[in-house]
Each structure stands twice: as C-alpha cells, then as structure tokens.
C-alpha cells in the first residue's frame, strides 16, 4: 500500500511561480495538437523561439553549466543583446536575464496541449515585471505559437 502523491504539471508550476512576481500575467491557450508536436516548436529555443516570442529575434545556446543549467545569448528585434540563464526541460522553460524574464509551460490535456506563457521586462534586480503590455504580449506569443504548430505563417 502506498500513500497518494500529487503531481504538479508544468502549467500549474508556471502559475505558482508567476504569482510570486508582481506585474506578471499568465497567458494560457489550448492548442489542438499532441504535446510532442507543440513542444517540438515551443522548446526549440534556437530555431523556433524567435518565431513566436514577440521581442526575441535570435537566441543561441552558449554552454551548459555543470548543474544542467543552460546559458543563452539573445538578441531582441530592437538589436539589444541579453545573456540568459535557462532551465529547459520537456514542458518547461524558464529564462532570466538582468532585464527580461520569459516562462513557458505545456501539458497534455484531453483537447490537445495546454500552453502557458509569462514574462516581460524585469524591474532590475527584482522578481517583478514592468506590467505594461504583458497581457497583450503573452496572448500574442501563444497565438503565434499555435499558428506555428499548425504550420501556418506567423
């Protein structure tokens, strides 16, 4: 006999982490496609991330640290560069630079895949986001991701 154990799926995990970040908004959307198909796009930071994250043009994974954490260099659409610490696992991506935060999560649901996104411009040195525009940016990122998964132009 064993005691029941509760699991935390990546989307619930994202909601929990975002709740601790003032200014953060969690956009959510169900994409009618299997988890593997969705994460093949969402989790491909170098080839796909820039196609759906509004401010991200190019992202290059630099090195993996001994603790498994990745380091990435990113360039925004406006030419700014950033160095990100990245935690990337199936269904989960959390990225932090000095000025930006991006979180992405996905979990299988009966209708397909539930995806969630949060992020924006960071209040320097704090776990807080400048709240302007985060809602529209999050919804737009997931709409682009859904279109990308469906193979439509974004």
């Amino acid at each position: 006999m064993s005691w029941p154990v509760a699991d935390l799926d990546p989307v619930r995990r994202l909601r929990a982490l975002a709740a601790a970040i003032p200014g953060a908004y969690v956009a959510e959307r169900v994409i009618p496609a299997p988890f593997a198909a969705v994460w093949a796009v969402a989790g491909d930071l170098e080839k796909e991330f820039g196609t759906f994250e509004p401010d991200m043009r190019r992202l290059t994974l630099d090195s993996a640290r001994p603790d498994g954490r990745l380091v990435a260099r990113a360039r925004s659409r406006y030419g700014m560069r950033a160095r990100f610490d990245v935690d990337l696992r199936p269904g989960w991506c959390w990225m932090q630079s000095r000025f930006l935060l991006v979180g992405l999560a996905a979990t299988a649901v009966p209708e397909g895949t539930l995806v969630a996104q949060t992020g924006g411009v960071r209040v320097p040195g704090r776990a807080a986001l400048v709240p302007w525009g985060v809602r529209a940016a999050g919804d737009r990122a997931l709409a682009r991701l859904a279109a990308r998964v469906a193979g439509r132009p974004v």
């Binding site: 029941p4 699991d7 935390l8 799926d9 619930r12 909601r15 982490l17 709740a19 601790a20």
Partner: peptide, 27 residues
Amino acid sequence: YLGRICGPIALDSGPDAVQEALIAIFR
C-alpha cells in the same frame, strides 16, 4: 515534498492544492 503532503489530504484535488500551496509559499 508538497506532493506527498497534499496528495493524501486533497486526493483528486492534490495538483490544485500543490499549486495553491506554492503560491502562498512564494508570496
């Protein structure tokens, strides 16, 4: 750890309980 605490108490609502516990903890 929270999954082991919340699972036997909240049963089917365990995942929601873990989420809500984490929200309270981090806040």
